[in-house]
């Protein structure tokens, strides 16, 4: 119970109640819809890129506290990152939540560290990673669009 309280206090304080970048975006460069059919979490990720850098990222949707706060923190963490840096951060974050071993090329997670506690609640890991998978899909769609030009 104490671990849970600690996790939620860190996570929900702030980000769940006041999610950052929680808005639809007009004319995004990248967009993807994320859906967790088991629990009904739904997230839309909007993305603006300029010269290979994440200029703006926002989200919209409906999810639990872990899902919402993770999405909110993700948008903050990603702004200003290059596409490659964003991908690397996703890999590192995903690894931290799903694997016991240290990540080979450990990238500092910074404020995202607080979400590592989710690892103790395996059924909730997908809540914390939904926004990231959706971001990844939005980025890949954008990159796909570029490569077909």
């Amino acid at each position: 119970m104490e671990n849970l309280r600690e996790l939620y206090q860190q996570v929900i304080l702030d980000h769940n109640k006041n999610p950052r970048n929680f808005r639809k975006m007009e004319h995004p460069d990248g967009f993807a819809h994320g859906n967790n059919p088991l629990c009904g979490d739904q997230i839309d990720i909007y993305l603006k890129l300029k010269d290979g850098v994440v200029e703006d990222v926002s989200f919209d949707g409906n999810g639990c506290a872990i899902c919402t706060s993770s999405a909110s923190m993700m948008t903050v963490a990603l702004k200003g990152k290059t596409e490659a840096e964003a991908k690397a951060l996703f890999d590192s974050f995903h690894h931290a939540l799903t694997e016991d071993t240290a990540y080979p090329d450990d990238i500092p997670l910074g404020k995202l560290e607080v979400l590592k506690g989710v690892k103790d609640y395996p059924v909730r890991v997908k809540c914390a990673t939904l926004a990231w998978h959706t971001f990844d899909a939005a980025l890949r769609k954008f990159q796909g669009d570029i490569s077909t030009e």
Partner: peptide, 28 residues
């Protein structure tokens, strides 16, 4: 509180409930 968070907190108190759409999305 979102139902998932309810489920996790109740579980910590030993209480097993179902959370989600209960395979009845049209009802939700």
């Amino acid at each position: 509180v979102h139902p998932h968070d309810i489920g996790t907190f109740l579980d910590a108190d030993g209480v097993a409930v179902r959370t989600g759409h209960h395979c009845a999305q049209p009802v939700m």
